[in-house]
Protein backbone atom coordinates (compact mmCIF):
# COMPACT_ATOMS: atom_id res chain seq x y z
CA UNK A 1 0.00 0.00 0.00
CA UNK A 2 1.16 3.51 -0.76
CA UNK A 3 2.35 5.49 2.22
CA UNK A 4 -0.39 7.64 3.67
CA UNK A 5 -0.65 10.65 5.90
CA UNK A 6 -3.28 9.83 8.53
CA UNK A 7 -5.58 12.14 10.50
CA UNK A 8 -8.07 11.53 13.25
CA UNK A 9 -11.44 13.26 12.92
CA UNK A 10 -14.49 13.32 15.16
CA UNK A 11 -17.85 12.37 13.72
CA UNK A 12 -18.77 16.04 13.44
CA UNK A 13 -15.55 16.77 11.64
CA UNK A 14 -16.18 13.85 9.31
CA UNK A 15 -19.59 15.26 8.53
CA UNK A 16 -18.07 18.64 7.76
CA UNK A 17 -15.55 16.90 5.55
CA UNK A 18 -18.29 14.97 3.71
CA UNK A 19 -20.26 18.16 3.29
CA UNK A 20 -17.31 19.88 1.67
CA UNK A 21 -16.69 16.87 -0.53
CA UNK A 22 -20.29 16.80 -1.63
CA UNK A 23 -19.80 20.04 -3.53
CA UNK A 24 -17.62 18.17 -5.96
CA UNK A 25 -18.65 14.54 -5.43
CA UNK A 26 -21.65 12.30 -5.15
CA UNK A 27 -20.69 10.05 -2.26
CA UNK A 28 -21.78 6.42 -2.05
CA UNK A 29 -21.37 3.98 0.81
CA UNK A 30 -22.93 0.81 2.19
CA UNK A 31 -26.13 1.85 4.00
CA UNK A 32 -28.33 -0.23 6.30
CA UNK A 33 -31.90 -0.70 5.09
CA UNK A 34 -34.08 -1.53 8.06
CA UNK A 35 -36.09 -4.72 7.39
CA UNK A 36 -34.69 -4.90 3.86
CA UNK A 37 -33.48 -8.48 4.30
CA UNK A 38 -34.87 -11.74 3.02
CA UNK A 39 -36.30 -12.86 6.35
CA UNK A 40 -38.45 -11.14 8.98
CA UNK A 41 -36.83 -8.14 10.63
CA UNK A 42 -33.48 -8.75 8.96
CA UNK A 43 -31.86 -5.68 7.48
CA UNK A 44 -30.06 -5.43 4.20
CA UNK A 45 -27.08 -3.28 3.38
CA UNK A 46 -26.98 -1.59 -0.02
CA UNK A 47 -24.68 0.93 -1.67
CA UNK A 48 -26.50 4.24 -1.70
CA UNK A 49 -25.75 7.96 -1.79
CA UNK A 50 -24.93 9.32 1.65
CA UNK A 51 -24.69 12.72 3.28
CA UNK A 52 -23.43 11.90 6.74
CA UNK A 53 -20.84 9.67 8.32
CA UNK A 54 -23.40 7.95 10.53
CA UNK A 55 -25.22 6.54 7.53
CA UNK A 56 -22.22 4.40 6.60
CA UNK A 57 -22.42 0.76 7.75
CA UNK A 58 -18.92 -0.21 8.83
CA UNK A 59 -19.59 -3.26 10.94
CA UNK A 60 -21.34 -5.70 8.66
CA UNK A 61 -20.67 -6.83 5.10
CA UNK A 62 -23.04 -5.24 2.59
CA UNK A 63 -25.67 -7.62 1.25
CA UNK A 64 -25.32 -6.31 -2.28
CA UNK A 65 -22.10 -5.33 -4.00
CA UNK A 66 -20.40 -2.08 -4.86
CA UNK A 67 -20.86 -2.68 -8.58
CA UNK A 68 -24.45 -1.41 -8.25
CA UNK A 69 -23.11 2.15 -8.16
CA UNK A 70 -21.56 1.68 -11.60
CA UNK A 71 -24.09 -0.67 -13.11
CA UNK A 72 -27.41 -0.21 -11.32
CA UNK A 73 -29.80 -3.16 -11.44
CA UNK A 74 -31.98 -1.21 -13.85
CA UNK A 75 -30.42 1.55 -15.91
CA UNK A 76 -31.88 3.57 -18.74
CA UNK A 77 -29.19 4.05 -21.38
CA UNK A 78 -31.01 6.30 -23.83
CA UNK A 79 -34.41 7.41 -25.02
CA UNK A 80 -35.33 7.06 -28.65
CA UNK A 81 -37.86 8.38 -31.11
CA UNK A 82 -38.25 7.44 -34.72
CA UNK A 83 -35.12 9.16 -35.92
CA UNK A 84 -33.16 10.43 -32.97
CA UNK A 85 -32.06 9.42 -29.52
CA UNK A 86 -31.11 11.17 -26.31
CA UNK A 87 -28.58 9.78 -23.90
CA UNK A 88 -29.76 9.26 -20.32
CA UNK A 89 -28.41 11.69 -17.77
CA UNK A 90 -24.79 10.98 -16.91
CA UNK A 91 -23.41 11.71 -13.45
CA UNK A 92 -23.04 15.45 -13.02
CA UNK A 93 -20.50 15.39 -10.23
CA UNK A 94 -17.51 13.19 -9.67
CA UNK A 95 -18.14 10.09 -7.60
CA UNK A 96 -16.59 8.90 -4.36
CA UNK A 97 -17.32 5.35 -3.21
CA UNK A 98 -16.59 3.81 0.17
CA UNK A 99 -15.58 0.19 -0.27
CA UNK A 100 -13.54 -2.56 1.32
CA UNK A 101 -10.39 -3.98 -0.29
CA UNK A 102 -12.32 -6.77 -2.02
CA UNK A 103 -15.00 -4.37 -3.24
CA UNK A 104 -12.48 -2.00 -4.77
CA UNK A 105 -10.59 -4.89 -6.35
CA UNK A 106 -13.81 -6.18 -7.86
CA UNK A 107 -13.90 -3.05 -10.00
CA UNK A 108 -10.67 -4.16 -11.67
CA UNK A 109 -12.56 -7.21 -12.85
CA UNK A 110 -15.58 -5.12 -13.84
CA UNK A 111 -13.20 -2.83 -15.76
CA UNK A 112 -11.78 -5.72 -17.72
CA UNK A 113 -15.18 -6.96 -18.74
CA UNK A 114 -16.73 -3.60 -19.54
CA UNK A 115 -13.67 -1.82 -20.94
CA UNK A 116 -11.21 -4.41 -22.19
CA UNK A 117 -13.37 -7.16 -23.56
CA UNK A 118 -12.68 -7.68 -27.25
CA UNK A 119 -11.38 -4.16 -27.59
CA UNK A 120 -14.80 -2.61 -26.99
CA UNK A 121 -15.34 0.01 -24.31
CA UNK A 122 -18.79 0.16 -22.85
CA UNK A 123 -19.74 3.80 -23.14
CA UNK A 124 -22.19 3.88 -20.27
CA UNK A 125 -19.80 2.12 -17.92
CA UNK A 126 -16.94 4.37 -18.89
CA UNK A 127 -18.82 7.62 -18.44
CA UNK A 128 -19.24 6.92 -14.71
CA UNK A 129 -16.03 4.92 -14.23
CA UNK A 130 -13.90 7.88 -15.28
CA UNK A 131 -15.41 9.97 -12.49
CA UNK A 132 -14.87 7.51 -9.65
CA UNK A 133 -12.45 7.67 -6.76
CA UNK A 134 -12.44 5.15 -3.94
CA UNK A 135 -12.38 5.50 -0.18
CA UNK A 136 -11.03 2.32 1.35
CA UNK A 137 -12.80 0.96 4.44
CA UNK A 138 -10.67 -1.30 6.61
CA UNK A 139 -11.95 -4.63 7.96
CA UNK A 140 -11.07 -4.86 11.65
CA UNK A 141 -13.88 -7.36 12.07
CA UNK A 142 -14.01 -9.77 9.18
CA UNK A 143 -17.20 -11.54 8.29
CA UNK A 144 -18.33 -15.13 8.01
CA UNK A 145 -16.98 -16.57 4.77
CA UNK A 146 -14.57 -13.80 3.75
CA UNK A 147 -11.57 -15.19 1.84
CA UNK A 148 -10.09 -12.16 0.08
CA UNK A 149 -6.58 -13.21 1.12
CA UNK A 150 -6.89 -16.49 -0.80
CA UNK A 151 -7.42 -14.61 -4.07
CA UNK A 152 -5.14 -11.66 -3.41
CA UNK A 153 -8.00 -9.20 -3.12
CA UNK A 154 -7.06 -8.09 0.39
CA UNK A 155 -4.66 -5.41 -0.83
CA UNK A 156 -5.33 -2.47 -3.06
CA UNK A 157 -3.66 0.68 -4.24
CA UNK A 158 -6.69 2.07 -6.03
CA UNK A 159 -7.87 4.17 -3.11
CA UNK A 160 -7.66 7.93 -2.83
CA UNK A 161 -8.57 7.91 0.83
CA UNK A 162 -8.95 5.33 3.55
CA UNK A 163 -11.32 5.54 6.50
CA UNK A 164 -11.27 3.46 9.63
CA UNK A 165 -14.18 3.79 12.02
CA UNK A 166 -13.02 4.06 15.59
CA UNK A 167 -16.12 4.30 17.79
CA UNK A 168 -17.05 7.95 17.64
CA UNK A 169 -14.11 9.07 15.58
CA UNK A 170 -12.51 8.14 12.31
CA UNK A 171 -8.98 7.75 11.03
CA UNK A 172 -8.58 9.15 7.55
CA UNK A 173 -5.60 8.24 5.40
CA UNK A 174 -4.74 10.37 2.36
CA UNK A 175 -3.31 8.66 -0.72
CA UNK A 176 -4.26 11.25 -3.30
CA UNK A 177 -2.88 14.78 -3.08
CA UNK A 178 -6.18 16.18 -4.42
CA UNK A 179 -7.51 15.77 -0.89
CA UNK A 180 -4.62 17.32 1.01
CA UNK A 181 -6.13 20.76 1.31
CA UNK A 182 -9.13 19.44 3.26
CA UNK A 183 -6.74 18.48 6.05
CA UNK A 184 -4.63 21.60 6.32
CA UNK A 185 -6.16 22.44 9.68
CA UNK A 186 -5.43 19.02 11.25
CA UNK A 187 -2.17 17.53 12.36
CA UNK A 188 -1.26 14.04 11.27
CA UNK A 189 -1.36 11.13 13.70
CA UNK A 190 0.76 8.03 13.77
CA UNK A 191 -1.68 5.37 12.63
CA UNK A 192 -1.69 3.10 9.66
CA UNK A 193 -4.99 1.86 8.24
CA UNK A 194 -4.68 -1.85 7.57
CA UNK A 195 -6.49 -4.15 5.20
CA UNK A 196 -6.91 -7.83 6.10
CA UNK A 197 -3.72 -9.86 6.36
CA UNK A 198 -5.29 -13.23 6.96
CA UNK A 199 -8.80 -14.71 6.88
CA UNK A 200 -10.13 -17.45 9.07
CA UNK A 201 -11.39 -19.17 5.91
CA UNK A 202 -8.62 -20.28 3.59
CA UNK A 203 -9.53 -21.42 0.10
CA UNK A 204 -7.15 -23.26 -2.14
CA UNK A 205 -8.53 -21.58 -5.26
CA UNK A 206 -8.48 -24.15 -8.07
CA UNK A 207 -6.44 -23.52 -11.19
CA UNK A 208 -7.60 -24.95 -14.50
CA UNK A 209 -4.78 -24.37 -16.91
CA UNK A 210 -6.04 -26.02 -20.08
CA UNK A 211 -9.20 -26.60 -22.04
CA UNK A 212 -8.88 -30.36 -21.90
CA UNK A 213 -8.98 -30.29 -18.10
CA UNK A 214 -11.93 -27.88 -18.21
CA UNK A 215 -13.83 -30.25 -20.50
CA UNK A 216 -13.11 -33.21 -18.27
CA UNK A 217 -14.32 -31.25 -15.27
CA UNK A 218 -17.59 -30.54 -17.06
CA UNK A 219 -18.24 -34.27 -17.15
CA UNK A 220 -17.31 -34.81 -13.51
CA UNK A 221 -20.08 -36.17 -11.24
CA UNK A 222 -19.44 -33.44 -8.64
CA UNK A 223 -22.06 -31.18 -10.25
CA UNK A 224 -24.93 -33.67 -9.94
CA UNK A 225 -25.89 -32.81 -6.38
CA UNK A 226 -26.77 -29.27 -7.43
CA UNK A 227 -29.78 -30.42 -9.44
CA UNK A 228 -31.41 -31.21 -6.13
CA UNK A 229 -29.84 -28.39 -4.13
CA UNK A 230 -29.69 -25.27 -6.28
CA UNK A 231 -33.04 -23.63 -7.06
CA UNK A 232 -31.63 -21.36 -9.76
CA UNK A 233 -32.68 -18.19 -8.00
CA UNK A 234 -29.75 -16.02 -9.00
CA UNK A 235 -29.19 -14.57 -5.52
CA UNK A 236 -25.53 -15.57 -5.74
CA UNK A 237 -24.80 -13.71 -8.96
CA UNK A 238 -26.88 -10.63 -8.17
CA UNK A 239 -24.93 -10.23 -4.94
CA UNK A 240 -21.60 -11.12 -6.56
CA UNK A 241 -19.02 -8.36 -6.72
CA UNK A 242 -17.61 -9.62 -9.99
CA UNK A 243 -20.52 -11.02 -12.02
CA UNK A 244 -21.37 -8.66 -14.85
CA UNK A 245 -24.18 -10.16 -16.89
CA UNK A 246 -26.96 -7.92 -18.03
CA UNK A 247 -29.76 -7.91 -20.51
CA UNK A 248 -30.68 -5.06 -22.81
CA UNK A 249 -34.31 -4.40 -23.60
CA UNK A 250 -36.19 -1.75 -25.48
CA UNK A 251 -39.15 -0.44 -23.58
CA UNK A 252 -41.67 0.92 -25.98
CA UNK A 253 -43.92 3.63 -24.57
CA UNK A 254 -46.99 3.56 -26.73
CA UNK A 255 -48.56 1.65 -29.54
CA UNK A 256 -45.83 3.26 -31.62
CA UNK A 257 -42.89 0.89 -31.49
CA UNK A 258 -40.54 3.68 -32.50
CA UNK A 259 -40.66 5.66 -29.27
CA UNK A 260 -39.23 4.38 -26.05
CA UNK A 261 -36.10 3.80 -24.05
CA UNK A 262 -33.33 1.28 -24.01
CA UNK A 263 -32.70 -0.26 -20.63
CA UNK A 264 -29.99 -2.41 -19.23
CA UNK A 265 -31.03 -4.77 -16.47
CA UNK A 266 -28.85 -7.02 -14.39
CA UNK A 267 -29.36 -10.67 -15.21
CA UNK A 268 -28.06 -13.99 -13.99
CA UNK A 269 -26.72 -17.14 -15.58
CA UNK A 270 -28.46 -19.02 -12.76
CA UNK A 271 -31.95 -17.94 -13.76
CA UNK A 272 -34.19 -19.67 -16.31
CA UNK A 273 -34.22 -17.99 -19.68
CA UNK A 274 -30.75 -16.45 -19.38
CA UNK A 275 -29.22 -18.40 -22.22
CA UNK A 276 -32.31 -18.56 -24.36
CA UNK A 277 -31.40 -18.14 -28.01
CA UNK A 278 -33.68 -17.27 -30.93
CA UNK A 279 -36.20 -20.05 -31.23
CA UNK A 280 -36.50 -20.36 -27.47
CA UNK A 281 -33.93 -23.08 -26.98
CA UNK A 282 -31.76 -23.15 -23.86
CA UNK A 283 -28.33 -24.71 -23.63
CA UNK A 284 -28.28 -25.22 -19.91
CA UNK A 285 -31.56 -26.63 -18.70
CA UNK A 286 -30.61 -28.26 -15.44
CA UNK A 287 -29.61 -26.16 -12.45
CA UNK A 288 -26.50 -28.31 -12.10
CA UNK A 289 -25.50 -27.19 -15.59
CA UNK A 290 -26.12 -23.56 -14.75
CA UNK A 291 -24.19 -23.82 -11.52
CA UNK A 292 -21.32 -25.58 -13.27
CA UNK A 293 -21.25 -22.87 -15.91
CA UNK A 294 -21.10 -20.15 -13.24
CA UNK A 295 -18.30 -21.80 -11.31
CA UNK A 296 -16.22 -22.71 -14.34
CA UNK A 297 -16.65 -19.21 -15.71
CA UNK A 298 -15.21 -17.79 -12.49
CA UNK A 299 -12.43 -20.34 -12.19
CA UNK A 300 -11.57 -21.00 -15.82
CA UNK A 301 -13.36 -19.01 -18.54
CA UNK A 302 -12.50 -15.57 -17.28
CA UNK A 303 -8.85 -16.37 -16.69
CA UNK A 304 -8.57 -18.08 -20.07
CA UNK A 305 -9.53 -14.76 -21.64
CA UNK A 306 -7.72 -12.24 -19.45
CA UNK A 307 -4.95 -14.24 -17.76
CA UNK A 308 -5.40 -12.28 -14.54
CA UNK A 309 -6.55 -15.05 -12.19
CA UNK A 310 -9.98 -15.80 -10.77
CA UNK A 311 -13.12 -13.83 -11.48
CA UNK A 312 -13.64 -13.60 -7.77
CA UNK A 313 -12.47 -11.35 -4.94
CA UNK A 314 -13.42 -13.64 -2.06
CA UNK A 315 -16.03 -11.25 -0.67
CA UNK A 316 -18.25 -14.15 0.43
CA UNK A 317 -21.54 -12.54 -0.62
CA UNK A 318 -22.64 -15.39 -2.90
CA UNK A 319 -22.62 -17.91 -0.07
CA UNK A 320 -24.06 -15.43 2.42
CA UNK A 321 -27.04 -14.83 0.11
CA UNK A 322 -27.70 -18.40 -1.04
CA UNK A 323 -31.08 -19.42 0.41
CA UNK A 324 -30.15 -23.07 -0.03
CA UNK A 325 -26.91 -22.70 1.94
CA UNK A 326 -24.72 -23.74 -0.95
CA UNK A 327 -21.18 -22.76 -0.03
CA UNK A 328 -19.09 -21.51 -2.89
CA UNK A 329 -15.81 -22.24 -1.08
CA UNK A 330 -17.03 -25.81 -0.46
CA UNK A 331 -17.65 -26.13 -4.20
CA UNK A 332 -14.17 -24.78 -4.91
CA UNK A 333 -12.72 -27.41 -2.60
CA UNK A 334 -14.65 -30.13 -4.42
CA UNK A 335 -13.38 -28.75 -7.69
CA UNK A 336 -9.78 -28.85 -6.47
CA UNK A 337 -10.35 -32.43 -5.43
CA UNK A 338 -11.78 -33.27 -8.85
CA UNK A 339 -8.77 -31.67 -10.53
CA UNK A 340 -6.47 -33.85 -8.44
CA UNK A 341 -8.48 -36.93 -9.40
CA UNK A 342 -8.38 -36.10 -13.08
CA UNK A 343 -4.69 -35.30 -13.03
CA UNK A 344 -4.11 -38.50 -11.09
CA UNK A 345 -6.07 -40.47 -13.66
CA UNK A 346 -9.14 -41.49 -11.62
CA UNK A 347 -12.04 -42.52 -13.87
CA UNK A 348 -15.74 -41.88 -13.37
CA UNK A 349 -18.46 -43.46 -15.39
Amino acid sequence: MKHAQTYQLTVNEMNEFLEQLSKKYDIYAPVRISCGGRYAKDDSIIYQPINTYQEIEFHERSTYPLKEVLTPITQTLFYFTEDEFKESKSPQKDVLIFGRACDINSIKIQDQIYLQNGGIEDYFYKRIRDKIKFILMDCPEQFEGCFCCSVGANKTDMQSLAVSDNNGSAYVGIYDSDFNNYFAKYSAVDHEIQTPLENELKVDYPVIDNLDLANKLKEHPMWKEFDARCIGCGSCTVSCSTCTCFETTDIVYTQNAHIGERRRTCSSCMVDGFDKVAGGQSFRKKTSEKYRYKILHKVYGYNARFHTGPMCVGCGRCSARCPELISYPATLNKLSQAIKEIKGGVQHD
Binding site: G36, I73, S235, C266
Partner: peptide, 16 residues
Protein backbone atom coordinates in the same frame (compact mmCIF):
# COMPACT_ATOMS: atom_id res chain seq x y z
CA UNK B 1 -44.12 -12.53 2.21
CA UNK B 2 -43.17 -15.45 -0.05
CA UNK B 3 -42.41 -12.94 -2.82
CA UNK B 4 -39.89 -11.23 -0.53
CA UNK B 5 -38.16 -14.49 0.30
CA UNK B 6 -38.03 -15.54 -3.35
CA UNK B 7 -36.60 -12.29 -4.68
CA UNK B 8 -32.87 -12.43 -5.44
CA UNK B 9 -32.37 -8.66 -5.51
CA UNK B 10 -34.33 -7.29 -2.57
CA UNK B 11 -36.79 -5.64 -4.98
CA UNK B 12 -39.49 -6.93 -2.64
CA UNK B 13 -39.05 -6.19 1.03
CA UNK B 14 -41.16 -6.26 4.16
CA UNK B 15 -42.01 -2.86 5.63
CA UNK B 16 -40.98 -2.36 9.25
Amino acid sequence: GECVTACPTGAWRRPA
